[in-house]
Design a protein around this nucleic acid. Structure first.
Ligand code: FES
Ligand code: FES
Lengths: 146, 146
DNA sequence: ATATTTTAAGATAAAATACTCTTAAATCTT
DNA sequence: AAGATTTAAGAGTATTTTATCTTAAAATAT
């Protein structure tokens, strides 16, 4: 459902948001190399994908020593759907699951009435969930994977 | 979410199931060429994908004049999940949305608690929905796309 | 028997996605 | 000013998915 690029980006954004809360990292740029290393991701792939997030205004970037990226908004203001929109686009939430051109209640496919509901619930989840929600889970659960 | 192969296959299976109910087609083989033409799909791609459904026992095939495919079960006994399982596999319903190796309540990622629920609802839909349900919608709605 | 129709199977080609590399530009450190 | 660090951008490569083609096998029709 999410592309590999999008999965990586969401993980990284959650990681950045969480780190940026700590005193040591507040308002500091975090190097992409460090993020990739800490999360076990490819530096090349991650920095490429980050370029979109920077352009979209979700991240601020800075070159040179002590450079890196940092969030432009507080975790409570960055929703998962914002990241998905930038990296994958939102076609998934508009398109027919059977691949028809149009998707609407007026022009439904044979399983539209069932799928549209599920799809909206997913959309709802991505719209409601912010990086802060994810961070809270990090604090809440012990053996959580970041 | 569904691959192109899977989307095509589901559409074709619904079409076959619906056609097989009609007196003229009862217990007859329906040519793959006709199915592809009627649904606007590629004959090559569809016949390739059908091979899996035949092997899996969802379709019976027959070569030569008046050959083709026909369902091996009544529409009420073929669930969407059966087709998805054969064509795409069920990894989607087991895997972590953020790409982690494991996915379980005991070893969750930062959004597992939110996603697992949605994912199960989708699974539920695919498990509960049969070809008969889709056919009923064909009868129920006027401008429906098959 | 021979020719025709139709699916099966495997090879090939094209397109999309995932991933990597190289060079440049910006910034900092000395 | 020179060198080191770090992201930006675009080109390049690899892998996966999608789509097509070719040949074979099976069944029917003549
Ligand atoms: S028309 Fe197919 S899901 Fe809406
Ligand atoms: S662990 Fe990530 S969705 Fe379950």
């Amino acid at each position: 459902m999410l592309s590999a690029a999008c999965r990586d980006s969401i993980r990284a954004m959650i990681y950045i948001a969480n780190l940026s809360k700590k005193e040591r990292y507040k308002n500091r740029f975090i190097s992409i190399y460090k993020i990739a290393r800490d999360l076990g991701l490819s530096f090349y792939f991650l920095s490429k994908n980050f370029q979109k997030l920077v352009k979209a205004g979700l991240l601020e970037s800075h070159r040179g020593p002590h450079g890196g990226v940092k969030p432009l908004k507080p975790p409570s203001k960055i929703r998962l759907i914002d990241i998905v929109t930038v990296i994958d686009g939102i076609d998934f939430f508009n398109n027919c699951i059977l691949g028809f051109e149009e998707c609407s209640d007026e022009n439904p496919c044979t399983i539209h009435n069932l799928w549209a509901d599920k799809r909206n619930q997913i959309l709802n989840m991505f719209e409601k969930t912010t990086l802060e929600d994810a961070i809270k889970n990090i604090e809440r659960f012990e053996n959580i994977k970041v």
